[in-house]
Amino acid sequence: MSAIYILIIISFLVALGFLIAFLWSIKSGQYDDDYSPSVRMLMEDQIKTTKGSKKP
């Protein structure tokens, strides 16, 4: 039964990690703009122009 004391403390610490991650994400502005990132991830890394300039 005593194992549960340790387990509860561990699980609390794990959960606390997620809380900190959440607060961090607020602070870094992840909830400021909820539209652009959804589009940004669909962008190609390179776009072609007729100049044919290839970027390294």
């Binding site: 809380l19 607060l23 607020i26």
Partner: peptide
């Protein structure tokens, strides 16, 4: 606004 979200997060947790 972000302060409110902070407080909300802590309370929810």
């Amino acid at each position: 606004q972000s302060k409110l979200l902070f407080q909300l997060g802590v309370a929810g947790f």
